Simulated scan of single mutants.
Amino acid sequence: MNYYQSLGYLVLGSRLKRLSELFLSEINKSYRAEGIVFETTWFPVFYLLSENKTLTIQELCEQIEVSHPAASQLVTNLKNKGLVISTTSAEDARKQLVTLSEEGKALLERIIPVWDAITATMEEVAGASEEGSAILATLTKLETTFKSIDIVKNIQHKIHHPVKSPSNA
């Protein structure tokens, strides 16, 4: 057991971040190895647009669970790269409709085999054991729990109202 592992929940966020950075770095290398210029941060928008030809920025926000400014910034970045087009909704001028451009669609066609290979590889690597198979369900459970409770409030309560155990009473 390494130092990080020995600290348990105190470094859960750090361990998840390190794992995420390692995973995303490997995925970015996979894109580059295939000669594909694609950033992992673009994935949620590309994937959603591959399933829904057009989405509003608000729909993107709701689906990928980011703020409106964050989604707008991502869309602007993709527009600047020529990968998406945004138009004003005919029904509601406040809504921006986002679609893949022709260049974005061509890139998507090159990316889909990489996504399939990523899925297959991760099913082999993570799904090879019972614990690995459970990781996605466990992450979903943690995300749901973290959204449903006020962690700061719970921590503050434990700081100011510690439970007295028989050993420190």
Rank of each mutant, 00 (worst) to 15 (best):
N2M: 04
V11W: 07
A71D: 01
V45N: 02
F38E: 13
V98C: 00
H68Y: 02
A120K: 05
T76Y: 06
V114C: 06
G127A: 03
E131H: 12
T119P: 00
A137G: 15
M1D: 05
L10R: 03
K105L: 14
K147S: 12
L55W: 02
V152D: 02
K141N: 10
P166D: 09
I111R: 03
T138N: 09
K141V: 08
T87A: 14
T138Q: 13
K95Y: 05
A71T: 03
A126T: 13
R18F: 14
W115T: 03
Q96W: 12
K95W: 06
Q63N: 09
L19I: 15
Q58E: 00
E39A: 15
V114N: 05
D92A: 05
T54G: 10
K79H: 15
A93F: 08
G82F: 11
S14W: 05
A137W: 13
L108W: 01
A70K: 06
T138A: 15
Y3W: 07
D92N: 15
D116G: 03
R18A: 14
L107K: 08
S133N: 10
G8A: 04
H157I: 08
I155L: 08
P166Y: 07
L60I: 01
V152A: 09
N168T: 13
K147L: 05
Y4A: 11
T76E: 12
L97I: 12
